[in-house]
Simulated assay, not measured.
Amino acid sequence: MTDVTTLAALNSDHSKSNSSKSKLSGDLDSFLSLLTAQLKNQDPLSPMDSTEFTNQLVQFSGVEQAINTNTNLESLIGLTQASIGATAVGYIGKEVQAESATMPLQDGQAKYTYTLPKDASKCLVVIKDSTGAVVKTEQGQLKAGTYHMTWDGKNGYGEQLDDGAYTLEVQATDTDGKTIEKIYTTVFGKVTAVANDGDDVMIAAGPVLFGMSYIVSVRDYTAPTPPAPETDPDATPDTGETGSEGDGTDTAGDTSGTAETETNG
């Protein structure tokens, strides 16, 4: 599924306005019936004072106008959300950066940032799975600033974990030994779906949902570079010798490629 858009919540809001309007109409009809009956049966020598009835009619009119205004506002909100949703559909397949502590592991890789508001004496980056179990703990930076990090999806034992939602937690202590509160974090993810729940347009990056209001940036998605194959340190080097009948050249032993090393936060 690449796009999920629902207007059920919006229709529910419109139903509430229509219900209020119908109830007001019924109350007004009852009021007018009562007023007509009282006027028909009033004493001609002592007619009723019409001031009170007039005031009540004015109140009914004011309530009706308020309901109509509310209905128009709901329609305007619905159109605005539909427009935002249409724009958000264009995000599918792109990479978004969002304010969140829940990050998606996609294609075996996750990216995130964290910002230290002040220098720290200790800093740990803890990654937890969907059950709350700690799967990775890394030493964080100590200087104040924003740090862009990449996680290769491996746990503390070097085992590759399944793609999914993981929680990011940055634990830091300042130079006075006090806990640093409100460490700002953002995560990156490839948009796979868009949904409208009636209150906000939601962006899905795999199993992780972000509200549109939390999106920081949008960019073209770049697939992660696969890791270079590991070289067996105990393997016997190939000297290229092929025997008396060969030409002395062996292209199968060419190891001129250079592995790219990436330091993960």
Rank of each mutant, 00 (worst) to 15 (best):
T5K: 10
A9S: 13
K21Q: 14
K21E: 06
S22M: 12
L24G: 13
S25F: 12
D27V: 09
D29Y: 08
S30Y: 14
F31H: 03
F31L: 08
F31G: 06
L32K: 15
L34P: 00
L35T: 13
Q38M: 12
K40Y: 06
P44Y: 05
P44L: 04
D49R: 07
D49M: 12
S50H: 08
S50G: 09
T51M: 13
F53Q: 11
F53C: 02
N55C: 01
V58K: 14
Q59N: 10
S61R: 08
G62P: 06
V63P: 07
Q65F: 10
N70H: 01
T71P: 03
L73Q: 08
L73R: 03
E74L: 08
S75T: 06
L76H: 05
L76W: 02
L79I: 10
L79C: 05
S83A: 15
T87G: 10
Y91P: 00
Y91K: 14
I92K: 13
G93Y: 12
K94Q: 15
A101T: 09
P104V: 02
P104S: 11
Q106C: 00
G108T: 03
G108E: 04
Q109H: 01
A110T: 14
P117W: 00
D119G: 11
A120Y: 02
S121Y: 08
K122M: 08
K122H: 11
L124H: 10
V126Y: 05
V126I: 13
I127H: 03
D129Q: 02
D129C: 00
S130Q: 15
T131W: 08
T131G: 12
A133R: 14
V135A: 05
V135N: 02
K143S: 13
A144S: 09
A144F: 07
H148W: 08
M149N: 15
T150N: 10
T150Y: 01
W151G: 00
D152N: 11
K154R: 15
N155D: 14
N155T: 03
G158F: 09
E159T: 14
E159W: 04
L161R: 04
D162E: 01
G164C: 06
G164T: 00
T167D: 09
L168A: 00
E169V: 15
D174W: 00
T175E: 13
D176Y: 09
K178T: 02
T179Q: 15
I180F: 03
K182M: 11
I183D: 00
G189A: 00
V191H: 05
T192E: 07
A193L: 06
V194G: 08
A195T: 15
A195N: 15
D200A: 15
A204M: 09
G206C: 09
P207S: 05
F210N: 10
G211P: 04
Y214F: 11
V216S: 05
V218N: 09
V218E: 10
D220H: 04
D220L: 05
A223C: 05
A223Q: 03
P224W: 11
A228H: 07
E230K: 10
T231Q: 13
T231W: 06
A235V: 04
T239H: 03
G240V: 13
E241T: 09
E241V: 07
T242G: 07
T242Y: 12
T242I: 11
G248A: 05
G257I: 00
A259G: 04
T261E: 13
T263G: 11
T263D: 13
N264Q: 14
G265S: 00
